[in-house]
């Protein structure tokens, strides 16, 4: 019995050994190496010199770091509001038998099929000031005064890029909520209607609370996606004009690969990683709490 028990205790490790080794070598190893690099002045080709916390000291004095951080925050705030509300509204609207519901759903999640790079290219062209669709339309309907250099105005550029992110995100959130609604017992809704609840009250007091787990996930995913934002900025502006659309991931990339400050780039990633970690903790804490049946 004891031998058998010991064997069964070994079982999970047998399942884990191969994936874990690969993961440790290719992801966790380089990750620790990155932590180490953040304490050096590595330029990518020379031998790294240990310089202690100098990169971090420099980072906290770097105005671009704060611009990027602020932009990531804008991104987070937009992502946890607009797509969530719009996605939920769409899910509510489409979660019934209306003509062409399937086509509607497909239209909204179709942007997800495109890679972010392709999205960036398509929208970059939409935003083009002289011939792009948006300004051309504004001029055609007599609103030429509203035409802007969407990606060249330092006050607009970040929002213009975030709008593209939202365009892609709404369908994703919609699908998540649609799935969540599948789990809502129609009987409950009927019951509340019998009690004389209006549509809004039913939603507010019955459906929305039932969707809380979905909302939590949506919010966490949105925050993490916002922190990892990279491709759209990289394709559309490379952080310009003069860093006004820089986000942390791009800031890191430019320092590491354009300016060849690998050590500094590593320090930026570590900070970004630590910020993400806060949200992972919150999320995991929630998930594991609901899994108490262990």
């Amino acid at each position: 019995m004891t031998r058998e028990k010991r064997l069964s205790q070994l079982t999970p490790y047998l399942f884990l050994i191969l994936p874990l080794i690969i993961y440790l070598i290719w992801v966790i190893g380089p990750m620790f190496y990155t932590f180490y690099l953040s304490l050096t002045n590595w330029d990518g080709v020379s031998t790294p010199d240990f310089i202690g916390l100098r990169n971090y000291q420099r980072l906290f004095k770097d105005p671009v770091f704060y611009i990027s951080l602020k932009n990531n925050l804008k991104w987070i705030l937009s992502f946890i509001t607009i797509p969530v509300v719009a996605g939920l509204a769409l899910a509510m609207a489409l979660n019934r038998s209306i003509p062409g519901a399937k086509a509607f759903k497909a239209s909204f999640y179709s942007p997800l099929v495109l890679s972010l790079v392709v999205c960036g290219l398509i929208w970059g062209w939409m935003y083009q000031p002289a011939n792009g669709l948006i300004n051309a339309t504004l001029r055609a309907v007599g609103l030429g005064a509203l035409a802007r250099g969407w990606l060249s105005d330092k006050n607009l550029v970040m929002w213009a890029i975030i709008a593209v992110g939202i365009w892609r995100q709404v369908g994703y959130v919609m699908v998540l909520y649609l799935a969540g609604l599948q789990g809502v017992d129609p009987g409950l809704i009927d019951a509340s209607k019998v009690d004389g609840c209006s549509g809004w009250l039913t939603f507010r007091h019955v459906i929305f609370p039932l969707l809380t787990p979905v909302t939590v996930i949506v919010v966490v995913i949105s925050i993490i996606d916002s922190l990892r934002a990279f491709d759209l900025v990289s394709v559309m502006t490379r952080g310009g004009p003069y860093n006004s659309s820089s986000v942390l991931a791009n800031f890191m990339y430019i320092q590491a690969f354009n300016n060849y400050k690998m050590g500094y780039g590593a320090a930026i990633s570590v900070v970004l990683f630590l910020i993400s970690l806060v949200f992972i903790f919150i999320y995991l804490w929630r998930v594991l709490q609901t899994e108490m049946e262990y």
Binding site: Y127, Q128, P129, A130, G149, W150, L151, S152, G240, P241
Partner: peptide, 12 residues
Amino acid sequence: DPAAYSWSEALQ
């Protein structure tokens, strides 16, 4: 609005 164009777009 030169910042909206790459050099070749501005060539137009």
